[in-house]
Design a binder for these strands. Sequence first.
DNA 1: TGAGCCCGTGGAATCGATTACACGGAGGAT
DNA 2: ATCCTCCGTGTAATCGATTCCACGGGCTCA
Lengths: 333, 333
Amino acid sequence: MASIKDVAAEAGVSVATVSRVLNGHPSVSTDARTRVQAAVDALGYRPNAVARSLRTDQTRALGLVISDVLNPYFTELARSVEEEARALGYSVVIGNADERPDLQDHHVRTLLDRRIDGLLVSPTDGGSPLMLDAARAGTPMVFVDRWIPGVDVPVVRSDGRAAVRDLVAHLHGLGHRRLAIIAGPAATTTGRERVEAFREALAAYGLDLPDAYIGQGDFQVDSGRRVTEGFLDLPEPPQVVFAADNLMALGALDAVRARGLRVPEDVGLAAFDDIRWFVHTDPPITAIAQPTGDLGRAAVRALVDRIEGRPGESVTLPARLVVRRSCGEPAPA
Amino acid sequence: MASIKDVAAEAGVSVATVSRVLNGHPSVSTDARTRVQAAVDALGYRPNAVARSLRTDQTRALGLVISDVLNPYFTELARSVEEEARALGYSVVIGNADERPDLQDHHVRTLLDRRIDGLLVSPTDGGSPLMLDAARAGTPMVFVDRWIPGVDVPVVRSDGRAAVRDLVAHLHGLGHRRLAIIAGPAATTTGRERVEAFREALAAYGLDLPDAYIGQGDFQVDSGRRVTEGFLDLPEPPQVVFAADNLMALGALDAVRARGLRVPEDVGLAAFDDIRWFVHTDPPITAIAQPTGDLGRAAVRALVDRIEGRPGESVTLPARLVVRRSCGEPAPA
DNA sequence: TGAGCCCGTGGAATCGATTACACGGAGGAT
DNA sequence: ATCCTCCGTGTAATCGATTCCACGGGCTCA
């Protein structure tokens, strides 16, 4: 592969001049400029980004450590992140943590080794020393969706409190009183928050959230299935199950179906995170929709701000309730 | 960030010795080795992958240019690719082409600039000069799922012919005779092949595939919707619509639903690519399942073989039919 | 005791870019 | 005519690693 020296030789100038042309530096004669351009075209020369990065100490690459690529919410997030990053002249290197702290650490380490300019993370846990150290050492970093308390890093996320209140109001209006939740891992903020928001909303209606109605899931399909089976085995099973993410909702659907029960006649189902398939499931699933695209774009902007020396602000966007049929007939529109 | 010089100074040895310790070179004294280790730990030193890559001319990174990240088939593929790559000591840099040749080219160019060791592509078109040149210039490359004829690059894909025959047999057995297909872009191999396989399978039953029953889609939801509307407007609409990918099937479902029609009573629906949501759609959708994980792993192995100087073989794996209820009641099990 | 080897080590070149610094020549001001 | 300034250019240092080569010392063996 041709290097800058080859171009210089071909154009009959020094490598410095070639570099200046490539970087649009003003002080190059028109003559030299055209000769270099010609040489570049003739050789099909492309600058070696590795060498450039070594010299300039910037890679123009962002790391994105995502909790789970198989979760449509995160793939949508990844897509908007890449889009915005591309618009700003950055590439994105994605690492999939599969909700496993060890994998998350592996990716953070690899990305740091590759000297990405900044890191976007939705932490699967409370934060390993590695990540905390990186944040403290000044690696530009932004948390998306989930975050770690007590770390000085901007957070871009969605606040589901109001939407959860709307959901509970909706359920209460349909006459449901025994409401259960499949929670996410307590080590994640979203795992905890959604339970709290649910509990508070229930309290507003004088309803209780007994321990038996809090199932511990891990944001994966199987846990949704397992927890739902537990709910159904209860002497007094809940009337509605609220899954804290879309994959656990899928597991819940599996479990209900496996018992020969029907949604919503026998059990209602609602989910956090709306995905396009929920329109066509049997029945269509009532869900809380996050402004995923906006989240991804805001996160990239905050990160790039940090990288380029600007403040880089936290952003919180509201989520909203999308009522479908999985909890009973909706009120006539 | 600490460099190898800092480690050398801290340990009281030369950078050469530090490098040897880091790379497990045998000829280093135990004494020097422990001193270097201590210095590494004390400084929290991590080798700069950029510098290493420049010197060794390898990045231990693979590029994966995927047709569409929002398509669950491809995200599953991406996941298995990353998994296998990680097991072999490589990272994966993903580029999302969104079925757009210009975006595909952008990513190929960026990845090449970053000097990834090899490229995994599922081409969205017949191949830009850029990609063809790269292949000819000897960049290790492997095509996954889709490929470009006439280029000397291993292909890892799934053969759906047998499964399509099974599908047609199934449909014929249910009494359906007017069968239509939503095709993918003619510029892609999968876009063309699936139509051909369908046509041949129909022919075996003495059935014809009239032009009116071939809708031109682009593997995206909207096109599935649009084509299906066209089918439903026909004086004699098809009894079953076969979508060449899962997203177009979703669009088809939208279109049918919007007309107030039911699947399978009014129109049957089948899809290429099976995804977990198909179990819970209304009705569950009959689909052709590819061994996606195996495909991803085989592709990585083939690519790494090429990179490391071994042959790197093409692989073709069979797909299989998964019968559900979207084309009518299945035969009793 | 001297020749030859092997082992552990360090010096320095190298990868491909960017950029500070120096230098020669042209042109303007005095 | 002399001096100063600017412009376009090249030389060389630099980024952080890897690795070839040379060197000194201890060993074995004759």
